[in-house]
């Protein structure tokens, strides 16, 4: 990793953008729309706690997106965005979620691949 990016795919996985789109919309997985608007027709009532993800693939590199999914708090300590690939340093995690990241390495790579297509 360098600067504000993790340039190497997690676990050497290759992301699949169409799977990533499903993961991002899935309320039990990425659930991105709870906080973010995304440029998908018919997706009503997105949240606005985080920035609009339209054009995110043009604004950030894959590595920068990857770091923000893995652990945004590294670059923004007060962020409201969960760290999707982190299991340490957490407090009172629900039993069924303990020791597990929100998304797997493959799922992170899939979402990175999808977000890269939003240009």
């Amino acid at each position: 990793m360098a600067g504000d990016a993790i340039d190497t795919p997690l676990g050497g996985a290759t992301g699949d953008g169409s799977r990533g789109r499903d993961i991002a919309l899935d309320r039990g997985k990425g659930n991105c729309l709870i906080c973010h608007r995304v440029p998908i027709e018919g997706e009503l009532f997105p949240g606005d706690v985080g920035p609009d993800l339209s054009g995110i693939g043009a604004r950030l590199t894959a590595g920068q997106i990857r770091l923000r999914l893995v652990d945004q708090s590294v670059i923004a300590p007060l962020t409201l965005m969960p760290s999707y690939y982190r299991v340490d340093g957490l407090r009172r995690v629900g039993e069924q979620f303990r020791g597990k990241p929100v998304l797997t390495a493959q799922e992170i790579e899939d979402v990175v691949a999808w977000l890269q297509t939003l240009r």
Binding site: G47, D48, V49, S73, L80, S83, F97, V102
Partner: peptide, 27 residues
């Protein structure tokens, strides 16, 4: 204090993000 797998504290939503939307719900 932050808590849970999503690592969010009450204050982050209910002091710092009041009026913003989580999906269709206003904080």
């Amino acid at each position: 204090e932050r808590q849970g797998q999503l690592n969010v504290a009450c204050t982050q939503c209910h002091d710092q993000s009041v009026g913003r939307k989580l999906r269709g719900d206003t904080i």
